[in-house]
Design a protein around this nucleic acid. Structure first.
Lengths: 199, 199
DNA sequence: AGCTTAACCGGAGATCCCTCCGGTTGCCAG
DNA sequence: CTGGCAACCGGAGGGATCTCCGGTTAAGCT
C-alpha cells in the first residue's frame, strides 16, 4: 500500500475511477471538517458510490486515511532516502537521525488530527506501512553511528516518542510546544547516539 | 478513577451492587474470550443490567477495562511507591528506573490482549489514569539520577517504548521475546540515565 | 461484434459504542 | 413512619465501522 511498491494487480478502469472519486471526496471533507468527523458512510455518499466500494478499495478506515497522506509520505521517503542532507545522504548519521526525527514531528504537527485518528483506530496497523520503512531507515542510521548497538530495538525506542497521540497530549495537556518536543528528542538522541548524557 | 483516590461521592447500595455484578461478568467473559471480543452490550446482558448502567458506572469501554486491572495496578503502585527495593525506595535511582520499566513490561505481557485493547480504543485516554502516576514517578527518579536533565520529557520518552501495541508487535511480528525487550530497555536507560553509551 | 468470466458495484444489515430520557428506588430528614 | 428528592435504572435509538451477496459491467479472446 504505502511502502513504495507498485500494485501487482492493475485496477479495472471503473475501479480506478471510483478510487479517485473517493479520494477527492475524502480530501475535500477532511479539509472542511476534522479527521475525526470523517465518516466513511458519508464519504461514500459524497463520492457517489456505495460504502462497500470504499471498503473494497481501501480495506478499512485506516487504509483510506493512509491513502490521503500517501503522496506526502512518498515525498518524505524520497527526501530521507535520496534528498539533500542533513535529511538525505551526505551528512553524519547522527545528524541525519536528528533531522529525520524532526521531520517526523513536523509531519505529525502539520496534520495532527489525521495522524491521531490513524493511531487510534486499529492499533496494530499503526506498524504496517510507513512505520516499517521508517524503522529500517532509522535502524540503518543507528547501525552506522553505533555499530555495536542493538539498532533495531533502539529504532523502535526512538520512534515511539514520535507518536501522534503522545505529541498531541504533550502539546494540549502538558503545555509543550514543538520546540520543547524537538529539544527533548535532541537530548534523547544525544544520549543514545552521541554519548552525550543529559544534565 | 485509578490514580489511587477515594471516591468523593459514596455510591448508593444498588449502584455498588450493580458495579460488582458488572465487574464479575466482565472478568468471567474476559477469561473465556479475549479482550477484543468483550462487547459492553453483552457484558450488560450477562450481568443482568441495562447497558446504560454500565456506562454510568464506568464512563466508557476504557473505564471498564481499567476497572478490571485496578487491583493489580493498585498493588503495582504500592510496590514502586513504598515496597522493597529495587522497585521501591532504598535503591539507586538508576536501578529503580530499570526495575520500574521491567515491571511495566511484565505487567503488559501478563495481560497483553487487555492492554492492547486499552490502547486501541480512545487513544487520548491512554494518558489518563495510571499513565500520569507512572510519569510523575519516573520523572522524579530521572530528576534524582540526572538533576539537570529534562526529566518530564525523558519520562515520556522512556514510557513510550513500553507500549502494549509496540510490545505485541515486537513479539509477534518481529520475533522478539521478553528478554530481548528488556535488554533493549536496559541499553536505552543505560544511555539516558547512566551515561553508558550502547555499542 | 459477441461471449465469457472475473472483477466490481451497491446497499441492506450485523455489530458495536455510547447517549438520552421517562420511570423507579434508595436514603435521609422530619 | 413517611414524604421528597437526588441518584439510579433500563433500553430504545443514533451513528459509526465493516461484511455479505445478488446483480452488473469491464476487459480480453475469438
Amino acid at each position: 500500500m504505502l511502502p513504495v511498491v507498485g500494485q501487482p494487480q492493475p485496477e479495472r478502469a471503473d475501479a480506478a475511477r471510483n478510487r479517485q472519486k473517493i479520494i477527492e471526496a475524502a480530501t475535500r471533507m477532511l479539509a472542511e471538517r476534522g479527521a475525526d468527523e470523517l465518516s466513511l458512510d458519508e464519504v461514500a455518499r459524497v463520492a457517489g458510490v456505495g460504502v462497500g466500494t470504499v471498503y473494497r478499495r481501501f480495506g478499512d478506515r485506516a487504509g483510506l486515511l493512509y491513502a490521503l497522506i500517501d503522496e506526502r509520505e512518498r515525498r518524505f521517503q524520497a527526501a530521507f532516502l535520496s534528498g539533500p542532507p542533513p535529511l538525505g545522504p551526505g551528512a553524519p548519521a547522527a545528524d541525519r537521525i536528528e533531522a529525520f526525527l524532526y521531520a517526523l514531528v513536523d509531519r505529525i504537527v502539520a496534520q495532527q488530527g489525521l495522524y491521531v485518528s490513524l493511531e487510534k483506530g486499529g492499533g496494530m496497523n499503526k506498524f504496517s506501512g510507513p512505520y516499517r520503512v521508517h524503522h529500517v531507515h532509522l535502524a540503518t542510521l543507528i547501525a552506522q553511528a553505533r555499530p555495536r548497538a542493538a539498532a533495531p530495538y533502539l529504532a523502535d525506542a526512538l520512534l515511539a516518542p514520535v507518536s501522534a497521540c503522545l505529541i498531541a497530549f504533550q502539546r494540549e495537556e502538558r503545555g509543550m510546544n514543538v520546540d520543547d518536543i524537538k529539544a527533548g528528542l535532541t537530548s534523547l538522541t544525544a544520549a543514545v547516539i552521541r554519548g552525550r548524557v543529559p544534565g
